[in-house]
Nucleic acid binder design. Sequence first.
DNA 1: CGTATGACCATGC
DNA 2: GGCATGGCCATAC
Length: 138
Amino acid sequence: MHQPDRAGEPDEPRSAFSRIYEIARQIPYGRVATYGQIAQIMGPPVTARDVGDAMAALRDGQPDPPVPWQRVINAQGRVSTGQRQQILLEQEGVSFTVKGVTDLGRFGWQGPDPGWAEAHGFHLLKNASEEKKQLDLF
DNA sequence: CGTATGACCATGC
DNA sequence: GGCATGGCCATAC
């Protein structure tokens, strides 16, 4: 039987935005991921810029389940949307320097669970090292 | 269809 | 470390 098409949406099985949101939901409480990381997990042709667009779209309203948009920051370790985002992260235990920079080595996400990624057809982070995973446990 | 804009990024100075 | 540039891709007009 046919899937009812959502008006205004492309007829792909799932829009790129929806898949980006799926990944963002995997970021654990108290961790952050960069736009570029999520783009890498998606794989080409999705770019960091597309991830930013997807997050920006959330301003119009959150999907269900909601997306922890505050955990997606830029590659410099700074939030891209102003102070409110940083405060939300600080409430999760993510610390920032006075200049508003966080330590991605300490609070950065190491990527999705490999089993989950494979089941959903996503890539893993190329840089996710065992060492950093151990570091994260602390 | 050209142009501008955007929650980006790597690189070079 | 800051700043400029070019590249990336999707959207809006």
